[in-house]
Computed example of a mutant assay.
Amino acid sequence: MAETFVDNGVEAVTADPTLAKSIWYFLQSIDEPVGSKAILPSHQTDGETDYGGDSIDEQTKFGRIVMPSTNEDSIELTTYVAPGDKSVEIIKQAKHDGKPVKVWRVVVDKRFATEEQDGDTTHQVFPAEFGYGIVDELDVSDGDDLVEADYTLNITGKLVDGTFPLTDEQISALEAVVKFERPGETTGEPGASK
Rank of each mutant, 00 (worst) to 15 (best):
L159G: 01
A15K: 14
H96M: 14
K61M: 12
L153G: 00
L40T: 01
L27D: 00
H123M: 09
E189V: 13
K86G: 07
D16R: 08
K102T: 03
I155K: 00
Y25Q: 05
V147T: 13
G143W: 04
T70L: 09
D120M: 07
E169W: 08
G119T: 01
S36L: 03
F112R: 09
K179R: 12
L146Y: 12
L153S: 01
D161H: 12
F180E: 09
D31S: 13
D150R: 15
K110H: 07
F130N: 05
E3P: 05
Q44A: 12
D150K: 15
E189A: 15
Y132S: 07
F26S: 01
D142T: 11
G35K: 03
T49I: 14
F26P: 00
S29L: 03
K61L: 15
A38N: 10
G119E: 01
E137L: 13
V66L: 12
G98C: 04
M1F: 10
S193P: 10
S74N: 06
G84F: 08
R182V: 15
A94H: 01
E185I: 07
I155S: 00
E148Q: 14
A12I: 10
I155E: 00
S36G: 02
R182H: 13
E11D: 10
T186M: 04
N154M: 08
K92H: 14
Q170N: 08
E58F: 14
A128Y: 03
T114H: 09
T18G: 10
D97A: 14
A94G: 02
L159N: 01
I134Q: 08
S74M: 03
G157M: 04
A173H: 06
D50Q: 11
P41N: 06
I23P: 01
G184Q: 05
S141K: 13
G63Q: 04
E169P: 05
D118I: 11
F130R: 08
T14A: 11
T45A: 09
L166I: 03
V103M: 04
A149T: 11
G188S: 03
F180N: 05
E181I: 14
G143N: 13
S42V: 03
E148F: 06
A20L: 11
M1K: 10
V135P: 02
D118P: 01
K110P: 01
D145F: 15
Y132K: 11
L40F: 07
E58G: 06
F5A: 13
D73M: 02
R182W: 14
E175D: 13
T18N: 12
G191W: 06
D109I: 08
Y151Q: 01
V147A: 10
P17E: 08
V103A: 07
R105Y: 08
G188H: 06
I39D: 00
A12D: 04
A20Q: 10
A2L: 11
L153D: 00
V125G: 06
D118Q: 12
Q124T: 15
E76M: 12
A128V: 03
E169L: 12
T187A: 13
G162E: 02
T4G: 06
K102W: 05
G98H: 03
S193T: 11
R105I: 14
Q124A: 14
A113T: 05
G133N: 01
D85K: 00
D109Q: 04
L40E: 03
F180G: 06
N8Y: 08
I134G: 02
D50I: 12
T49K: 07
T70M: 09
K95W: 07
F164V: 02
T167F: 06
K158N: 11
P190W: 11
